[in-house]
């Protein structure tokens, strides 16, 4: 899934001042295993309001260019998805979703 650091760098390899030279490389340190509860977006109920995407502190909500047709025939151009590599299961999206489209279930590993 992601890169893992195999060993600690020696001091000779560390850039001067301890600079980190790869912007955003914390993506190589997934935090999905923090989760106790797991948010699951019900794509049929979701009204694509963006609020989970706005509030998620990780960020771990993705907007995907994938159309979706609900069971009642409504067509959406995109899909909101949880990125389980990083979602810590805080439940903010569950709490803030205005139509209660996000279920929160105990994580089974």
């Amino acid at each position: 899934m992601t890169l893992q650091i195999k060993r600690l760098a020696s001091w000779r390899e560390v850039p001067v001042g301890g600079a980190i030279t790869q912007p955003g490389n914390s993506v190589n340190r997934p935090t999905g295993d923090w989760r106790v509860f797991k948010p699951i977006i019900n794509q049929d109920k979701c009204v694509r309001c963006y609020l989970c995407w706005v509030y998620c502190p990780e960020p771990a909500i993705k907007i995907i260019d994938r159309p979706y047709k609900t069971s009642s025939g409504r067509e959406w151009k995109m899909t909101f998805e949880v990125d389980y590599d990083y979602c810590k299961g805080c439940g903010i999206c569950v709490e803030e979703c205005p139509v209660k489209a996000i279920d929160f279930v105990e994580e089974v590993k």
């Binding site: 912007p23 955003g24 914390s26 509030y55 502190p57 990780e58 960020p59």
Partner: peptide, 16 residues
């Protein structure tokens, strides 16, 4: 421009 993988507590609004 803010990458996931940080260590703020789950639900820390500083991330938002």
């Amino acid at each position: 421009l803010f990458a996931p993988g940080h260590g703020l507590c789950a639900g820390c609004t500083a991330g938002t």
